[in-house]
Design a protein around this nucleic acid. Structure first.
Lengths: 170, 170
DNA sequence: CTAAATATCTTAGTGGCTAAGATATATATT
DNA sequence: AATATATATCTTAGCCACTAAGATATTTAG
């Protein structure tokens, strides 16, 4: 019984999550920016002002790639580079205020859809969903770290699929 | 009160969803295949045997790009091309059985994390989550379509951001 | 005060993507 | 039947974002 429910739940989550990815890709497409660029905007929106290095860390891109991302975002007028005066090696990337409005328009359909979905739930039910979302976030974060950890285990122990050379992580 | 709850919920969803994207990217990275390739595997897993054209439609990639995706997946031994005998223009892409095992290992951390999260909920609560996941899927799907629709509205009406040339959709 | 570590940028080369058109098959028109 | 049009995939040329390696600038350690 419960096992079947869990299986169904897993598939439903997977399906909605996959569709979420597609929504993001569509936003990038419509906005005319690269997927990674939008992903970085999302991280900046959630984490606030972060360094270029942190962006590389979170996205899994190389620092060189991040330089390109930030160059494009800066040229598009969405972010600003701000040298850290305490440690002048660091560069903080900050979202410019107008960027929210510029990009926000593309999330209107999503917000409307979610409003409609949420509308059918009581406050108590929403609190349950909130609790779940927070726990799911922590779980997925931990799972991501665990998966990255696999990269450190002897590669000859993980069979079947060819693996790329291990990306730099000093 | 409720407005604040909704806002918090939206951010929590956004955060967990963003982390989900990162998990997927990490899987692709560890498995040594391109992001789009893994995305197509996911679609194939969910939809079963689909045509190359349908993959292009769902992913938003061009048919030319899909040819490349399927070439790589076929060479990696994850899928098989199967010509439709009814309509010999069509090519069905089918996941080979071993692919599940090959890729499945990379989802173990995620499954364990979700098992742990789900474990804290009663059957009734899980049914609520299931209902939500299904409705969210439908909502996001509709939102994606709505957003794509923006591409058809006069471009000079959508301000601020430069837009790519409208991709082909005959 | 040199040496090592850290943070970002630069450069060359690679690979996946788009756009356009080619090929093959199917359907509609006369 | 023969021709034209539509559909589905593949092919090709060129572009752009990415990686890997190393350069530069700054900080911290010995």
């Amino acid at each position: 019984m419960r096992a079947a429910l869990l299986l169904e739940l897993e598939e439903a989550m997977r399906r909605s999550s996959a569709q979420g990815v597609l929504y993001g890709q569509t936003v990038a497409n419509v906005a005319g920016i690269a997927n990674s660029d939008l992903e970085c905007m999302d991280i900046l929106y959630l984490e606030g002002r972060v360094t270029a290095g942190r962006l590389a860390e979170v996205t899994g891109l190389t620092t060189g790639a991040i330089t390109g991302v930030v160059d494009r975002l800066e040229k598009a007028g969405l972010v600003r580079r701000e040298r850290d005066e305490k440690d002048r090696r660091k560069v903080f990337i900050a979202v410019v205020p107008e960027a929210i409005a510029k990009l926000g328009q593309f999330y209107v359909p999503m917000q409307q859809a979610m409003e409609k979905v949420f509308g059918a739930y009581s406050d108590e039910e929403l609190r349950l969903l909130l609790r779940f979302a927070n726990e799911a976030y922590k779980g997925v974060l931990a799972a991501t770290e665990a998966l990255k950890g696999l990269l450190d285990t002897p590669p000859e122990k993980r069979p079947e699929l060819k693996l790329k050379k291990r990306p730099r992580q000093p």
